[in-house]
Computed example of a mutant assay.
Amino acid sequence: MRRVEHVMGLPVSLRIDDAEIPRGLPDRVYAWLREADERFSPFRPDSEVSRLDRGEIAPGEVSTGLAEVLAIGERYRAATGGAFDLRVPGRGLDPCAVVKGWSVQRAADLLTGAGVRRFCLNAGGDVVVEGGPWRIGVRHPEQAGGVCAVLELTAGAVATSGRYERGDHILDARTGRPAAGLLGVTVVAPTLTEADTVATAAFALGPEGIAWAAGQPGCEVYAIDAERRVRRTAGLPLAGPAAA
């Protein structure tokens, strides 16, 4: 089964290779992603996030899901010394850096919880896989359509942060200015919640973010700095030369 829908402002594709798929499961996956977008988007005035930011609901009254997202954001804010923050000076609350990976990982959990053994869930290039081997290309930060590395995973998640899709959208919250010093950071982790948040936080930190990300539990890193030097951890699951 293969399916693609536009959710959260990006294409989300789902591939399931199992011979039997529980009835209605793909519908539930996409329904959850649409629900997460409606509830946690800062761009929707009626979302829970926007209502919290306007003071219409108190921090202690938020849903369990939003409380979890905010707690993740706070953990990484502290871990990066404030470079990563869901509140950037001069801007409102924006949990997108956590919500995307967190919500897609929960969608993947729906699949595994239903007994699906082999799938690939791809949200705009950030990927969760199960039942591999799967080969995942890392987009070249300066060559549209180019691939600078190929990873091979049996299970887990891959996320990349860079400026090639949306320009300087990742800010160093310590200064409020666009993060500098890196062209791209790719993180492999057990879950997309970790991979996506660590990649974004590392990019916000700049060059020091490479070593920081490499030190996060369960994470492997592939990064290209502003001088176009490649840095990667020893355990990065690179595919063989024939796959590149």
Rank of each mutant, 00 (worst) to 15 (best):
R34C: 03
V7Q: 08
R106G: 13
D46G: 10
L183C: 08
V116K: 02
C96G: 11
E152A: 12
Q216W: 09
A239D: 04
T154F: 06
A31F: 00
A78K: 13
T112P: 00
G181T: 13
G132L: 04
W102F: 15
W134D: 05
S50P: 03
P217M: 09
E130S: 14
G184M: 10
A107S: 13
V221G: 00
L205M: 15
L110R: 10
C148E: 06
P95L: 12
E68F: 00
E61V: 00
I72Q: 01
V98S: 08
A58G: 10
A244M: 11
A114E: 05
F203W: 01
A242H: 14
D168F: 04
D225A: 10
D168C: 04
A157S: 14
V138P: 00
C96H: 12
F203H: 07
E227G: 14
A234G: 02
V62R: 03
A189Q: 07
G209V: 06
E5R: 15
R44S: 09
L14G: 06
L70I: 13
D109C: 05
G90D: 09
V104W: 04
R28D: 13
A180Y: 02
G131L: 06
R75L: 11
G156W: 02
I16D: 02
R2C: 02
R177E: 15
R135W: 01
G24A: 13
A123W: 07
L111N: 09
T186Q: 01
V147F: 00
E56C: 03
R232L: 11
P133T: 10
I57G: 07
A157N: 04
P26R: 14
V188M: 01
G181I: 12
S50Y: 02
G218T: 06
G92T: 11
G184K: 00
W102Q: 04
L236N: 00
L33G: 06
A155R: 14
R23P: 01
D225V: 10
A159N: 04
G131D: 05
D37H: 14
E38I: 08
H6A: 12
V98A: 10
R135I: 01
A226K: 09
A244P: 01
D27P: 02
G24I: 14
E56P: 01
A123Y: 09
R2S: 12
A226I: 14
A199W: 09
T112H: 02
Y164V: 13
